[in-house]
Each structure stands twice: as C-alpha cells, then as structure tokens.
C-alpha cells in the first residue's frame, strides 16, 4: 500500500488516476479489456470493493464501459480519450505552476525555465 498510494486521498480516486495514466501512455489501448476486479485488487493490494468503485466511477464518465458477462473495457470514443489527455495534462500543470508561484517564480521564469529544461533534455535524448 504505502509504496503505491498515499493515505490522504481516496484510494478509488488514486486508482482511477492510475488507470487514466495507463490509458494516456498507451499501456492500456482503446477497447482493451481491464483486468478483473480481483486481479486489479491483487496487483495493487486494494480491497475489491474499492476497485469496483473505481470501475464504476470511470464508467460514469465514460472512460470505461462494462459489457455484461464480458468485463470492463477501455472506451474507444476518441472524444473521451482526448479529454482525459487534456484533463490529466492540466492537472499536472496546475500543480507545477502553483508550486512555482508559491515560491515566487514569475510566469516568465516558469516559461523560460521549462523551455530550457526541455531543450536540454532533448539534446540528451538525441
């Protein structure tokens, strides 16, 4: 538990975020079947009730769909997939920017810093 989730945020949300990240990174592709509730529970050491709640929450926002008797599948809806990408991107950027601003960095500092970091990283990877 300690290594995978932190205890101050509902685990069903953390698990939902984890699945969203897997979808964005391509680890889970559109239309792919998710592991069963128990399998997921075992993998991440989480109560099956919690996993089931995660699946329900994801289903409510159409990220996954449950086919009766077959299991739970990642959506193939391009629009939904695009919106998860946007949502997760914004979420991470918000946190990053907030922290930078709290420490007193200006928008220019942030932008130039980010540009510099990315170009350096690009060189290293090339």
């Amino acid at each position: 538990m300690a290594d995978m989730f932190h205890s101050q945020k509902p685990i069903y949300q953390q698990l939902a975020d984890r699945i969203k990240k897997q979808i964005i990174s391509g680890e889970l592709s559109p239309g792919e079947k998710l592991p069963s509730i128990r399998e997921t529970g075992l993998e991440v050491n989480v109560n099956p009730n919690t996993v089931s709640r995660t699946y329900r929450e994801l289903e409510m926002v159409n990220i996954v769909e449950t086919k009766r008797g077959q299991g739970t599948f990642v959506t193939e809806d391009e629009g939904v997939l695009r919106s998860i990408r946007e949502e997760m991107k914004n979420e991470i950027i918000t946190i990053f920017v907030q922290e930078m601003q709290e420490m007193g960095y200006t928008n220019d500092d942030i932008q130039s810093g980010l540009g510099e970091f990315l170009s350096k990283k690009g060189e290293n990877e090339a």
Partner: peptide, 8 residues
C-alpha cells in the same frame, strides 16, 4: 499500514 488499503 499493512491493511490500510484493504479496509472498507
């Protein structure tokens, strides 16, 4: 800590 993630 051991059971934190499995308790309802």
């Amino acid at each position: 800590r051991e059971v934190e993630s499995i308790l309802d």
